[in-house]
Amino acid sequence: MKKCVSINDAVEGMILTKPVTNDKGMVLCSKGTSLNESLIKRFKEMQISVLYIESGIEMTEEEFIQEKDKIKKRFLNIKSDSILGKLKISLLKNLEEQKETNKE
């Protein structure tokens, strides 16, 4: 499962699930890279604050459904063609993606 950690909690061996980019969107380190001490140090110097990593924990079908329900409940009164409706689509898409990472 994809997880986000603060750079201060990053440790050697964590696997990036998203490329690390600088302010301008330039890729500094690609997806799938295994972190080591010198990389972490470099990210800190470059003021990267958060990293997406593989958590090693699988999202169970049950957790997936629970998360999905939570989102649906929050957006109960929101029409799908509104700004907040778009946000709901975005969140559900992200959740699906997180689950997909499991299968890779």
Binding site: S82, I83, L84
Partner: peptide, 10 residues
């Protein structure tokens, strides 16, 4: 649950 946002924002 969220309440719909003001239509003017849309």
């Amino acid at each position: 649950p969220l309440e719909p946002i003001d239509p003017i924002c849309e």
